[in-house]
Design a protein around this nucleic acid. Structure first.
Lengths: 347, 347
DNA sequence: TGTTAGCACTCTTCTGAAGAGAGTGCTAAC
DNA sequence: GTTAGCACTCTCTTCAGAAGAGTGCTAACA
């Protein structure tokens, strides 16, 4: 994965081992880890006093912190980062998990309009966190077909299908009374005329048409542009129950999670940081771009076909989360979704 | 609204007034209501001792219950029911609220594909509960247009648009290698041939065609049938934060709410009970069809055009919720959605 | 010099007791 | 029929003490 902040400080072998154990223990239990617990639960080979000394050093160096004077230590954001970048090992989903996911996906393979939702739910389950998945967006949308359906004399429904297989439905006010027959004639003519064109290209050719045609074409360019505007990016999420079960988000804090997911606040915070094509990116605690995310760990990746189709997906969890599971899941899902996009778009 | 269980027992004027106050007070505060609180906070005109006597009678009659020997009383499900059916008064959203909602709706009026999601979020906000809204389903789906897009020699994407403006995208395995040109020819021919037909009607005409055409038509009938199958009904929900804030669903209980919303468990529990065309239906506590709903109040309505298009919408809250707000909101939203459907379909 | 045992100390969490607060049912008086 | 008074019950909060876990420091040890 991308290394956001290379860690320069050198830790001894033993310090690394201790830090690793503390992170793992804390992630598993959620409670501060003491020196005694460590010696009792793991075959460390040294006494608790030695561990204590090392822990003091690690705290000095900024990798651990004490929530209160006594009662064990927990990793700092920096500690997590060191763990993720140096100690964790390569995150790769077990082949069993991979097979299971592919198998599950096969069941919805034919219902293209449910891919994103399904991806979100699978990702949430394998990562054990809240997942978010954006509907893929193409760089430029091209007209494939549209239908005009008369609703009232001056009101019509426009159904727009793009080359990129996106669909949009819009209500359109008409500048003059128009019946279905006329709308159909107009649509037939304009469909062949504009097939395969982008919004920009359609705009250039607007001139020579009638008022009504011009107006419809305007709506179509508007619709096409909307399909690949960042602001209109739709996201689906899943797995809130996973994070609500965590003790750190039990009561009041639950609200902050929901607030993040609602209204795409999360998306707009994280999106600018993501560069397409990179591997999985990890934001831990204070490393996060937005204040509201300070108490979270975020693991994100882009998926799609280089430069043409892009989406993002990722998971959101407490800083104390299993980064290994999250990273491996996100990485795998990003690949899977990219493969699907490949099948769909690159012909 | 529909009166599920007409209440035969006769209460005196004063008992009704007291029950009404207790329900309102308990809904507002969430804490059991005592006789003293009542006399202090409302101008009841009698002493707390009298209230106590009346409360004892109401408890006897099954309208109130004591969570513990001392500490006030709370309404039973039956008490709520009596309140809702007899004491509450006509639930009608204030015209201010009505205007606000219509105004908000105007902003997404042209993005038809977002109506349902938006309706859910507005309903959640006005009712102050979790809302669910189903995507409207037409009784019978008729072909309007479809596109076949070649992905691989034996794999194509089918985009299906119905007269009823529903859209479905499906992957289709082809029985023989076929290129885009051939697919387009086939689509052109079949579109004009099947335009306006239902799944059944298309099926009847399958015979005389080529293998490939027959196969595509099969897929189309499958797709059309899927669009109005109950099992595939999609629902959107919104406002989980509203219910998670409630003390009764703070910790563990939150899970049960999420479980209900996930996987449409709620829908399948409530749907059989709903009869189209009726007004708002209210299920309080043990009145609910499913066990998992026992601790909830559910207010549901159908919307749509009589017999042709139907959807459901409603809210879910703790039994202790403001039924007045919920019922008035659900009723108004159902009307609003019905109006929108009217514009869309009845021409 | 690194490691370990021991110890005094700190801080959280659990437990139980005490007291305040709210509400009830009953009785007797109005 | 209504009300005041009273003893009683139950919850909730507070507080102190004990238990548990962990720490830093010191002195001894290999």
């Amino acid at each position: 994965m991308e290394i956001n902040q290379p860690e320069a400080v050198v830790l001894t072998e033993r310090q690394q081992a201790i830090l690793k154990l503390i992170v793992q223990e804390y992630v598993a239990t959620g409670r501060p880890v003491g020196s005694k617990t460590l010696t009792e639960r793991y075959p460390v080979g040294v006494s608790s006093a030695t561990i204590r000394n090392e822990m003091a050093d690690l705290e000095q160096a900024g990798f651990l912190q004490q929530p209160h004077t006594s009662g064990g230590r927990i990793p700092t954001d920096r500690g997590y980062r060191y763990y993720v970048h140096r100690l964790m090992g390569a995150p790769e989903l077990s082949s069993g998990d991979q097979i299971m996911i592919r198998h599950q996906f096969r069941q919805v393979e034919f219902q293209l309009d449910q891919w994103v939702e399904f991806a979100a739910s699978v990702l949430a389950e394998t990562a054990g966190n809240v997942s978010i998945v954006s509907v893929p967006r193409t760089l430029v949308a091209r007209m494939r077909h549209f239908e005009l359906i008369s609703l009232q004399p001056r009101l019509a429904l426009l159904i727009l299908v793009t080359q990129e297989t996106a669909v949009r439905q819009m209500m359109v006010h008409l500048p003059e009374d128009t019946d279905q027959a006329e709308l159909s004639r107009l649509a037939d003519a304009l469909v062949t005329e504009t097939r395969g064109l982008s919004a920009d290209e359609i705009e250039r050719q607007v001139d020579g048409s009638t008022d009504l045609a011009r107006y419809v074409l305007e709506q179509i360019t508007f619709g096409l542009r909307g399909l690949n505007s960042v602001e209109r990016t739709q996201i689906r999420h899943s797995g809130i129950e996973n994070i609500l079960g965590q003790p750190e988000f039990a009561g009041e804090e639950a609200q902050s999670v929901l607030d993040l997911l609602r209204g795409g606040a999360l998306l707009s915070a994280v999106l600018p940081q993501l560069s397409a094509g990179n591997d999985v990116q990890v934001f831990i605690g204070d490393e996060n771009p937005a204040d509201a995310l300070r108490r979270f760990g975020v693991v994100m990746a882009t998926y799609g076909i280089n430069g043409e189709v892009t989406g993002i997906l990722g998971v959101l969890g407490p800083t104390r989360m299993s980064y290994w599971r999250s990273i491996s899941s996100v990485r795998y899902m990003a690949r899977l979704m990219s493969d699907l996009m490949e099948d769909l778009y690159s012909s």
